[in-house]
Amino acid sequence: MLETSSTAAIGLHGLVKSYRDTPVIPGLDAELRGGEFTVILGPSGCGKSTLLNCIAGLERLSAGRITIGGREVQEEEPKNRRLAMVFQNYALYPHMTVAENIGYALKVAGVKKPERAARVAEAARIVELGDYLNRRPGQLSGGQRQRVAIARAVVREPQVLLYDEPLSNLDAKLRHDMRVELAGLHRRIGATSVFVTHDQVEAMTLADRIMVLNKGKIEQFDTPEAIYHRPASTFVAGFIGSPAMNLIDVTGEGGMLRFANGTALAAHPHQGPAILGIRPEQVVPSPEGVPAQVTYAEDLGAYAVLTLRLPDGTALRMTTALGARNALSGDLRVSLNAEALHLFDPLTGMALSGSDTHSRTKKVQHDHLPS
């Protein structure tokens, strides 16, 4: 049975990557645990593919160290790092069969034909391509071609598997199906996996931990659950979630969070200015809540996203369950789930300590809100 070599943690120590005088990664430290599925997530231009290429050895570091399994590798060639990479564009040889594509690296490495055939067959079985070994890439669908690329990486029995946005060329259904297959593959072979994407759905569904990058710096590196429910900054709060978290400028005064015009929004002990974060699903209709006007509605089938205008002109998004949209139109009142409030520093954008914990948040006292 084909298995990867023993898994290896990846250490990033003071990693710097610059192009001429422009730093893309100004200095990064992180430990990617052995056998874990890590997703590097961020917007275009944040440095995530550059970071992956540095781990792979396709980019030379400007400064710092990389360790794989405790061994420094920043000066090693990619072929000596015991890793394999799956690219966005498949990079298959069109004149070769599926079997020849999968086994090409083994052939170059001098692996004997009987062993090569056995390992190719097992890799194809793992990605469910056993019936397609004699076909050429032009006879395959996009999803099947991507599975050939994955099998070509797996057959090398690497310690580390690197994925550079491998699903971005697929349609929505194929992306979903491939996510399921990748999750199953990771469970079966257990290699340390690093997956780059700008798609938060891929990150949330695949990752053991997510590294959120912003301008080459780590905003948060934690489990999907922690990143969604306890974002470390306004950047993470605004990037994770669809629709994104509402972020509102408020001032804490007299046990209440208030708009600039003094209107009370929610009960909270914080004093002074802050940015209030609340997920759209935590905004709920309430007869005793803050007045709001529905200005736009997006019907997404299972739920709708309503854009509201609050008394001070602030826009607030809320989601509604299936069938509830028609009852929520024109003017209404809404309250915020007090157990789900987040507060961020208005200068740094970082989460204020304890702002999203139950211990610091009281139930909203509706009689304190405007009538």
Rank of each mutant, 00 (worst) to 15 (best):
K217T: 12
L83W: 15
L300V: 14
R125Y: 05
G262P: 00
L213F: 02
N246Q: 07
T205Q: 00
R360H: 09
N246H: 09
A297V: 09
V154S: 10
P137F: 10
L316D: 01
A226D: 11
T97C: 04
L185S: 00
D331E: 15
A274W: 03
I210C: 00
G238P: 04
E128K: 13
R125K: 15
D208A: 01
F87Q: 04
L182G: 04
L300K: 05
F259H: 12
Y132I: 05
G277W: 11
R116A: 06
P370S: 13
F87L: 06
A338H: 12
P280S: 10
D299A: 14
M256N: 08
E75C: 04
A30D: 09
A338R: 03
A124D: 15
I248P: 00
P285Q: 05
E77A: 14
G42D: 06
Y132F: 15
L133A: 15
V127D: 01
A266S: 15
L182N: 01
N53R: 15
F37E: 01
G142W: 01
L51E: 04
G241S: 02
I278W: 14
G47S: 09
L308Y: 07
A304P: 05
R187D: 07
G27D: 13
Q293I: 12
L306N: 07
P43H: 08
T361N: 07
T348P: 06
V250Q: 03
L133H: 04
V39M: 02
P166F: 12
K362Y: 03
H198C: 09
A153L: 05
D299I: 07
F344R: 03
G14S: 06
A117R: 13
P231E: 02
P287L: 08
M204K: 01
I189C: 05
R360W: 13
I227D: 11
Q144V: 10
H95G: 06
